[in-house]
Amino acid sequence: MSESRPHTLFSFGTLRDERVQTALFGRAVPSSDASLSGYTTRPLAITDPEVIATSGLDVHLTLRRRIGAEVAGAVLRLTDEELAAADAYEVDDYVRRRVVLTSGESAWAYLDADPLRSAARVVIAGDSIAYGRCDPQGGWAAHLAAAHIAADEAQHRVFNLAIPGSTMRDVSEQLPALLGPRLPDTVLVAAGVNDSARPLDPAAATGDALADVTGHLDRLAAAAHRHNARLVVIGPAWIDETRTGDYEGLCFTLERVAALRERVRAWCGERFVDFLDLWEPLRGRPELLVDGLHPGPEGHKEIAVHLGR
């Protein structure tokens, strides 16, 4: 029988209340004062009657990013079972993600379930689709940037560092050195179709990039965590295999793109990383793709709407 592992959870709200702790965990859990830099709070209306009954409040707090701000709270020391109870207590507006406390300690915290709503400074990395190829207006990333900056022109920034042709290996090797000067709080990595490509000539194959994707994501997650930035992985979009053709000796198939999507989704689920799926807005709609692979202007608009921007 395995022993329960200790977990550190940063709380800035009702979980610090001993009455709430006793109701959830059956005891007041060990805790110590802590703070989280680069965040502020905003109120969140609660409608779940069980959560309201436990906390005694119908308005809780949620975190949002802001340079120079700091949120005071406490670190709770929890067992596996207690962490699961805390997960069950939090409403769907929250998700558990890793943060770096002001002390430098890594801890769990409950963040806004919408990673873009709570972001301030966003870095985008990826391939030609994230870059905006085939859309003179800059693609879905430009739509996202316009809406994000318009929401708070003084505080919000978006840096699109996507490069056409990039694989996840390219991104994991190049992006870490570019994060520091941009002070990101959110890193969007588009896990694009290039990692699913196979040479038309089997003799030209030197390995399977698809098999290496999760290792590259591990390195990107570590780089984002060093900057206390929230990693958000954007899955590949649906393709029209009948029109993808020959891309400089490479071929793209729906089977391998779907396999990439599931591999990335599973990695995100196992590591409590946000996954945004681009599959559905284009699925079965070949008219939104210029060449079977790259969305046109209307396809990029559909993606932006799907992302809520």
Rank of each mutant, 00 (worst) to 15 (best):
R5F: 01
R5D: 12
P6Q: 06
H7G: 02
T8V: 01
S11E: 00
R19E: 07
F25N: 09
F25C: 11
A28Y: 01
S31T: 10
S32W: 09
L36F: 04
Y39E: 01
R42M: 11
L44C: 13
A45G: 02
I52C: 02
I52V: 15
H60S: 13
R66Q: 15
A69F: 05
G73P: 07
L78V: 04
E81R: 14
A86T: 09
E90I: 03
D93V: 15
Y94S: 07
L101T: 03
E105S: 12
A107Q: 00
A109Q: 05
A109T: 14
I124G: 02
S128W: 05
P136N: 06
A146D: 10
A151T: 12
V158L: 11
N160G: 09
L161D: 13
M168W: 05
V171Q: 08
S172M: 09
P176Y: 02
L179T: 12
L188W: 03
A190G: 13
V193L: 13
D195A: 01
S196R: 05
A197T: 09
R198K: 11
T206S: 11
D208M: 10
A211E: 15
A224Y: 04
R226L: 14
A229Q: 06
E241V: 07
T242Y: 00
D246C: 07
E248F: 12
C251Q: 14
F252T: 08
E255S: 14
F272Q: 13
F272T: 09
V273F: 07
D277A: 10
V290F: 13
G296M: 01
H300M: 09
H300D: 02
K301V: 14
K301A: 14
A304E: 04
H306R: 13
R309Q: 09
